[in-house]
């Protein structure tokens, strides 16, 4: 990178401009990624954190996808699953969004109702006793031993535990009563025949990850944010490619001179690609640092934002890789520069 480093220093203005674009793109991607992850956690953390490997939904009508909103399973169905070979646990879980109140404070919460000894609900849940997630307790202003009203029922707060959230509402764990539930939480061994279980119980069993898409708001919200993030990746690659296309055209006379002097095409490509990668790495790291700083500030507010390697470093890595691809496509025109043009050219 003998020439590349010196070009970077010499054409400071042009590279600073492009570097700033890379910094801003990385910052934007980092913020969108952190926000997408934060919103996703608010949507799915209660389901994703269930001690189960599969969830069985009531089989939807033909052509429809399963959904938490439409699923309703009965005692016969979860007992049918319990009888399946290889199934080590089949616990009903009822999910219902309702109004909670404590004193003069109210909050929308999602009740996750499970049998107290099922292992799904946290310790302390029982008839008339509930466990609140931290955010629910905060919104209602209650702690362990206080009374809350869930819908029409009074309950005592047995404990405040966890950060579980479902569809942007904090979760309240309650005891299941009745013979109906929303889904069946399954724990399966290696020999479990899921298709046979579904057929016997009239359900559709999905892995917990796949089941997240059955939360209506999650799919729409996450899809939009991921699309936005994808577009930012593509735009970043295109902008980088456009910059290096113009830059390569501008310096094609220099490239012709170097070729005439004996520079091999691989040498020139390495030099140019190294320059692009140096610019991308510098700009992306600065952008990632800014995104991390912004994340620290945002994390102290009510905005759902997750700051970790997956939301900052991973997008930064993707930006570098895609930007390098864009630059590689742009600088390939170096191969077409004819050294003969250096003879008689005026510079």
């Amino acid at each position: 990178m003998f020439v590349a480093w010196r070009d970077l220093r010499f054409a400071k203005g042009r590279f600073a401009l492009m570097g700033t674009v890379v910094v801003l793109m990385t910052l934007l991607v980092g913020l969108v990624s952190g926000l997408a992850e934060g919103l996703a956690r608010e949507n799915v953390s209660a389901v994703a954190g269930l001690p189960a490997d599969r969830l069985a939904f009531a089989a939807p009508p033909d052509g429809r996808a399963v959904s938490f909103a439409d699923s309703k399973v009965s005692r016969e169905q979860w007992e049918a699953w319990e009888r399946q070979p290889g199934v080590t646990g089949a616990q009903p879980l009822a999910i219902r969004t309702l109004r909670a109140a404590a004193g003069d404070r109210t909050a929308s919460v999602t009740a996750f109702a499970a049998e107290p000894d099922s292992g799904l609900a946290p310790r302390g849940v029982g008839p008339g006793r509930v466990v609140l997630s931290a955010k629910a307790a905060e919104e209602l202003g209650v702690g362990a031993g206080d009374a809350v009203r869930l819908g029409e029922r009074e309950a005592a707060v047995a404990a405040v535990a966890g950060e579980a959230s479902y569809s942007h509402t904090p979760v309240v764990w309650t005891a299941l009563d009745g013979d109906d539930a929303t889904v069946i939480a399954l724990r399966t061994g290696s020999g479990a025949d899921l298709a046979a279980g579904d057929e016997a119980a009239g359900t559709t069993a999905l892995s917990v990850d796949d089941a997240l898409t059955a939360i209506g708001s999650y799919q729409a919200e996450n899809g939009s944010l991921q699309l936005m993030r994808g577009f930012l990746f593509v735009i970043s690659a295109l902008v980088t490619g456009a910059f290096f296309t113009v830059w390569t055209i501008q310096r094609s006379a220099d490239v012709a001179v170097l070729k005439a002097l004996g520079a091999s095409t691989p040498y020139l490509l390495r030099d140019a690609l190294g320059q692009a990668v140096a610019l991308l790495v510098g700009g992306t790291l600065a952008g990632a640092a800014l995104a991390a700083g912004a994340g620290v500030l945002i994390s102290g507010t009510d905005v759902p934002f997750v700051l970790d390697a997956a939301t900052v470093l991973l997008p930064a890595g993707v930006l570098i890789a895609l930007g390098a691809c864009g630059a590689a496509l742009a600088i390939r025109r170096i191969t077409a520069v004819d050294p003969l043009t250096a003879l008689g050219s005026a510079r």
């Binding site: 220099d254 001179v257 070729k259 002097l261 004996g262 050219s345 005026a346 510079r347």
Partner: peptide
């Protein structure tokens, strides 16, 4: 041929064709 040019041939261009970002020594 590129290797031959850099190892055994020196070319003095009509116009100097110097690279703008490099010093004379570079």
């Amino acid at each position: 041929r590129a290797a031959l040019r850099r190892e055994r041939i020196g070319i003095v261009f009509q116009q100097p064709n110097l690279l703008p970002s490099l010093t004379a020594a570079e």
